[in-house]
Each structure stands twice: as structure tokens, then as C-alpha cells.
């Protein structure tokens, strides 16, 4: 770098300016939705693309919360997303571990099979899945949602964990074995704790997907509206013939906030986790 300090400061400033401007543009739809959620109905039509309002209507939130029955949906969504995260993380971590660190007959076949599912068309598979869930007597339970949703994230998570585990130093594992640790201890006490960033990454991905899933919760709780999730509940607002726009915005914000919070909490580990997975 042979540029002078002033030029460098100037360039820096320009960079920050560009990042901020881009960021504002990037976040604009969110700002607008948040703004819209605080407007009165008339304001909403009068202000157009301006996200700001002079008279914020905080009551929109309480109204949306109550009318949308968001309290119940919220709990369902937390259980659904939480269950999906636990099941996905455990199953993919275990599978990723044995695929990365152990040798067994059929390993290549398993890899080929799950790799192929990434490319195969999924088409109209809802009826076979529905029949299966029904035969398991899980229809209209949150378990059905968790299992079906988790299954959809299995392959990707397994590949991520596989990539991550294959980069962890073998010395640790071998030292543990010398100390007499068995297969389970090695995995649960050494490998899994070491994979924190990847745990966070897979947890985040599966949480995002479960949180935003619409079709799965709709179909598998069809007779149990009390088990619906936030995304399905949102449709209460998008009712057929009338729509309360400001409440739609408030509902969207309510739906989004928790998942954004989860992301903020996990993002520290997130890039590191991915970096671990792609190292090799």
C-alpha cells in the first residue's frame, strides 16, 4: 500500500458510504414494513413508499397479536422449529460424523444416494408422504411437522457436518482412543463439542426453514387449526375479501422478529462453521 493516509481515509469513507447506502437499500423493504405496521389505515395509503409516520399506532401490534391468535401460533412455531432443529442437528451430526470419519461397507453408496436426492425432482410427493404420516398415526400432531420438515433438511446438513468433521485434527480423536474412550465417547465428548460452529450453522439453516415453512404445517395439521404455525396464521390476515394492510405488516414483523433474533444470536459461529466445512 503506497497510498497516503488521506487518500486511504477518503477511500475508507467512500467504502463505508457505499456499504451503508447499499445496506439501506437492502433493508428498505423491512423498514417500509415496520413503518407500515405503525401507520393508521389512511396514513398507509397517503404515505406511499415513505416508511415514516408521524403518529405511530402501536395498537396495531396488540390488535394483530390478538386477532391473529399469534400467541398460540407462536408457541406452536417455537415447538415446531425447536423440534426440527434438535432432530436435524442430531441426525445430521451423527451421520456426518460416521460418513466423514469411519469406513464401512456401503459408505460410497450412501453418499451417492443422498447426493442424488439433491438433483432429483421432488414433484408431487405430498400424497405418499401424507399416507406415510397417517400410517404412523402422526397426522395432526406437531411430530408430523417436525419429522417431515427435518427430513427435508437432512441431506444438506449431513454434507455440511461431513465437511466439518473431516477437517478436525485426528490427533485429538486418536489421543482419546489411547485413553480408552470408546466410539460414543469420542463422538459425544470430543467431536460434537468441537463442532460448535457447525452445530450453530445447521441449527440456523433448519430453524429458518422450519420457521418459514407453510405447506408442511398446513397439510399435516389439517384438522387441528390450534396446531397451526405463524406462517399459516398469517393467512388469517390475508383473508379473501378484505385485508387490513397495517395489520398484515404488523403480523409480518411479529413473524420475522424471532427468526432474526435467532440469526443474530447464532451468526457469530455461523461463518466459522461454514469455513470449517469448506476447508477441504
Amino acid at each position: 500500500m503506497r497510498t497516503g493516509p488521506i487518500a486511504r481515509t477518503g477511500r475508507r469513507g467512500l467504502l463505508y458510504l457505499a456499504l451503508t447506502a447499499g445496506g439501506l437499500l437492502w433493508l428498505y423493504p423491512f423498514l417500509w414494513a415496520v413503518g407500515g405496521s405503525l401507520k393508521s389505515d389512511d396514513d398507509f395509503f397517503a404515505t406511499g413508499l415513505d416508511p415514516f409516520t408521524t403518529h405511530p399506532q402501536w395498537s396495531n401490534y396488540s390488535q394483530a397479536w390478538e386477532e391473529g391468535d399469534f400467541g398460540r401460533y407462536f408457541l406452536n412455531t417455537v415447538l415446531f422449529a425447536g423440534g426440527t432443529v434438535v432432530l436435524t442437528v442430531l441426525a445430521t451430526a451423527m451421520a456426518g460424523y460416521v460418513l466423514a470419519r469411519t469406513e464401512f461397507p456401503g459408505r460410497k453408496a450412501v453418499l451417492a444416494l443422498i447426493g442424488a436426492t439433491l438433483f432429483l425432482p421432488h414433484g408431487y410427493t405430498i400424497i405418499p408422504v401424507f399416507d406415510l404420516i397417517q400410517r404412523l398415526h402422526l397426522l395432526n400432531t406437531l411430530w408430523a411437522l417436525i419429522i417431515v420438515q427435518s427430513a427435508s433438511g437432512m441431506v444438506f446438513g449431513t454434507f455440511l457436518f461431513m465437511g466439518y468433521f473431516s477437517t478436525i485434527d485426528r490427533g485429538l480423536e486418536e489421543a482419546a482412543r489411547v485413553d480408552g474412550a470408546d466410539f460414543h465417547q469420542v463422538f459425544w465428548r470430543i467431536m460434537l463439542p468441537l463442532s460448535g460452529p457447525m452445530l450453530a450453522t445447521v441449527a440456523l439453516f433448519s430453524c429458518i426453514n422450519a420457521w418459514n415453512s407453510f405447506f408442511v404445517p398446513l397439510v399435516f395439521t389439517l384438522s387441528r387449526p390450534d396446531l397451526h404455525t405463524l406462517t399459516v396464521g398469517m393467512f388469517t390476515f390475508l383473508g379473501e375479501n378484505s385485508t387490513a394492510w397495517t395489520l398484515v405488516c404488523a403480523g409480518s414483523v411479529i413473524t420475522l422478529l424471532p427468526i432474526v433474533a435467532v440469526f443474530l444470536g447464532l451468526q457469530r459461529y455461523f461463518v466459522n462453521g461454514l469455513a470449517g466445512a469448506v476447508k477441504e
Binding site: 425447536g82 489411547v178 470430543i190
Partner: peptide, 26 residues
């Protein structure tokens, strides 16, 4: 149980049991 990675183990155990408790509750 003596493990080379003993500093990790307690935390892991705690975390594991918290997870299990959570799973039971859920």
C-alpha cells in the same frame, strides 16, 4: 472416566443434559 479432553467434558455434559431436558420438556 479419564479423557484427554477433560476440560471440555463437564461443559459438554452440562450442555448435553440441558439439551435432553429441553427435549423431554418439548
Amino acid at each position: 472416566m479419564q479423557m484427554t479432553a477433560s476440560p471440555l467434558s463437564r461443559r459438554t455434559f452440562l450442555r448435553g443434559s440441558a439439551l435432553a431436558a429441553g427435549a423431554v420438556a418439548a
